[in-house]
Computed example of a mutant assay.
Amino acid sequence: MTLPPRLAVILTPERHSVLFALKGIIAMSLALYLAMLMQLERPYWALISAVFLQVRPETGLVIEKGLCQIGGTLVGGAMGLLILATLLPYPFMALLALTLWIGLNAAASAWVRQANFIYGFAMAGITATLIVVISIANPTTTSSVGIFHVANARVSEIIVGAV
């Protein structure tokens, strides 16, 4: 008795596919466990970081993508802190500077052809966005310690997930 092709794919997967799925599940579970063990503020960022690295099955490309993810997060975190350090009293100007930063990353990603570098530019833009927007969302409670805490949480959780 032969199975229909769609059912055969589900019930009799290839060994390579099963191993890839198991590696992904272990990596994502480990990232979430470590983030929770370290009592990071938003452990789901570590999980999401690990999920995005599992998109490519080739090991060398996953390592390169992880390095681009970490590099983009560090650059974006530094830029988010720089924007807030100079423009925190002026939220409109901070959002304008953030818009320019996102535009610069979009332009830079259009100039490169390597998908992992494009991903690094995207991480630089989104990390700065999260830091700036979360920090200026409630200006009455925003302080330099709070801003650094948001940036530290984002960067550390992404690095835990990537590693």
Results as ranks from 00 to 15, higher is better:
43 P>I: 11
160 V>K: 07
117 F>E: 09
65 K>R: 15
81 L>W: 04
99 T>Y: 02
95 L>K: 05
159 I>T: 15
105 N>D: 08
155 V>L: 07
96 L>E: 08
55 V>A: 06
117 F>T: 10
52 F>H: 02
136 I>Q: 09
150 V>G: 01
113 R>V: 04
108 A>G: 13
156 S>W: 07
48 I>E: 02
14 E>C: 01
81 L>A: 07
83 I>K: 02
44 Y>M: 10
61 L>Y: 11
112 V>Q: 11
106 A>C: 10
36 M>C: 12
121 F>P: 10
37 L>T: 14
154 R>L: 05
70 I>V: 15
92 F>N: 07
156 S>H: 08
134 I>R: 11
122 A>R: 11
53 L>N: 03
123 M>K: 12
142 T>R: 10
161 G>A: 03
78 A>S: 12
72 G>M: 11
20 F>R: 11
21 A>R: 06
96 L>D: 06
45 W>Y: 14
20 F>L: 14
29 S>G: 15
115 A>Y: 10
96 L>V: 13
8 A>Q: 13
128 A>T: 04
67 L>S: 06
104 L>F: 15
55 V>H: 02
143 S>R: 06
68 C>H: 13
138 N>T: 07
121 F>Q: 06
61 L>M: 08
59 T>D: 04
95 L>Q: 09
71 G>W: 04
133 V>P: 00
1 M>K: 10
145 V>Q: 12
151 A>W: 03
141 T>F: 01
133 V>F: 03
123 M>W: 12
84 L>N: 10
